[in-house]
Design a binder for these strands. Structure first.
Length: 111
DNA sequence: ATTATGACTTATT
DNA sequence: GAATAAGCCATAA
């Protein structure tokens, strides 16, 4: 299956996210090309690069976990929380308590 | 080409 | 603060 350039950018940027940090769909969208986070979320949900792309490090602008494994809630979300906790990120239930984990893309990372 | 959907965001109620 | 509506961009049918 071919991947569109847009998705390539999304996956690339997602891989750029350092461990122990998270980014938001909006920042990701802004870092690549479009201002639409929705399209970014769509690209991540396809996730052809599965574990190679730390999609669990991508969260909503509200610092909430958002979704995972194609679902907005369920045991998959629990897994996402667990992964983030292992990364050293702290949050309360579905919401981050420390925005310091928010990673912002640098100009060199965006094409 | 047009309609419908979505791991979203913002505004309004 | 929670729920609803409208808006934005990309993909699928």
């Amino acid at each position: 299956m071919e991947v569109s350039a847009f998705r390539q950018k999304v996956f690339n940027a997602t891989q750029e996210i350092p461990q122990g940090k998270v980014t938001t769909y909006k920042l990701l969208a802004a870092a690549i090309d479009c201002d639409s986070s929705q399209a970014v979320g769509q690209a991540l949900k396809h996730n052809p690069f599965a574990p190679s792309v730390p999609c669990h490090r991508v969260v909503r602008t509200d610092l909430s976990l958002g979704g995972f494994a194609g679902k907005t809630e369920g045991p998959e979300i629990k897994k996402k929380k667990n992964l983030l906790l292992k990364e050293g990120i702290r949050f309360c239930d579905n919401r981050f308590v420390d925005p310091s984990h928010l990673f912002t893309f640098d100009p060199d990372d965006a094409v």
